[in-house]
């Protein structure tokens, strides 16, 4: 009975792809993207071969020998290692990140507080974020890096360029990160605060136990984005004479007249930032799919 009733219905095969395409369909996505990636990369690389100045560029920017020497450094010629320069970048941003996370949070909490006692801090915090989000980071680096030593104020004026760099990055990025935190705090539904306060929790306990844990979770991806920028901005500290990767690459290129050292420095920065970029994207995608699942 079932058979005969099915037999009278429309033929299901009328919705099928042609047989020839069926075999291809499964692997089609992977195959197409692999072929198109190779083609695009080949096209871009070929520019270096057919462009009139191609040979020149290959020799001055992509010389493997120069890349290697720049990476290692060569003390006998006064060439500093781009690789060990990067260590300076790494500790500068690690230190700045820890400081920025703490200071940014304090500024954000001051800005959202309603308490009259904290009113002066609220004004200061607002002023701070307005000012330091408006000044180019390079200028903050100059002001701190050349200004503080000029004060001749004992220890404050006799730090290394890297320390001034960390100070400048921390000052600038704390303003950005405070705004990220503040957006997170404001995204916590008001009902959460009412529920906590009606349990008798104080304002401070409500912040600490209810608001901030939820706020921090939602702002992790934007925070990581700011950290990616900050990792790159450690290069600005080279303008103060700190010997980090960019500065070592610059010394190499002006000594040997070959720019491959910059390419090495660029590659090293990518090694640092790409994992963080990927991880941030992964978190954003995960949040998005959670939200979509929650909305259904």
């Amino acid at each position: 009975m079932t058979d005969s009733s099915e037999g009278t219905g429309p033929d299901p095969a009328r919705l099928y792809l042609p047989r020839r395409k069926v075999a291809f369909a499964g692997r089609r996505g992977t195959a197409v993207s692999a072929v198109s990636s190779v083609a695009v990369i080949a096209l871009l690389v070929s520019v270096f071969f057919w462009a009139p100045g191609g040979a020149n560029v290959r020799a001055t920017f992509f010389s493997f020998h120069d890349m290697w020497v720049a990476f290692r450094g060569d003390p006998s010629k006064g060439l500093l290692s781009v690789g060990s320069g990067l260590i300076t970048n790494i500790w500068m941003f690690l230190l700045s990140e820890v400081l920025v996370l703490a200071i940014g949070l304090l500024i954000a909490v001051a800005r959202v507080s309603r308490s009259p006692v904290l009113a002066p801090f609220r004004v200061l915090a607002t002023l701070y974020t307005d000012v330091f989000r408006g000044i180019p980071i390079l200028l903050v680096v100059y002001i701190i890096g050349f200004g503080l030593p000029a004060l001749s104020l004992g220890a404050i004026s006799s730090q290394s360029p890297a320390v001034y760099g960390v100070t400048a990055l921390t000052i600038s990025y704390s303003a950005y990160v405070a705004e990220v935190y503040r957006a997170g705090i404001n995204s916590v539904p008001h009902g959460q605060i009412l529920a906590a306060r009606s349990l008798g929790l104080t304002y401070a306990a409500t912040m600490r136990r209810v608001v901030l844990p939820q706020a921090v979770r939602t702002v992790i991806p934007p925070l990581l984005n700011d950290f990616i920028s900050m990792q790159k901005d450690t290069a600005l500290v080279s303008t103060l004479g700190a010997i980090e990767a960019t500065r070592a690459a610059q010394i190499y290129s002006s000594t040997v007249f070959n720019f491959s050292s910059y390419v090495v420095a660029a590659l090293l920065f990518l090694v640092l930032t790409v994992p963080l970029t990927r991880y941030t994207d992964h978190l954003i995608a995960r949040d998005r799919s959670r939200r979509l699942a929650g909305a259904s």
């Binding site: 906590a196 349990l199 008798g200 929790l201």
Partner: peptide, 8 residues
């Protein structure tokens, strides 16, 4: 537990 622990 939030109330008993952090309010009380």
């Amino acid at each position: 537990l939030l109330g008993p622990r952090y309010a009380l």
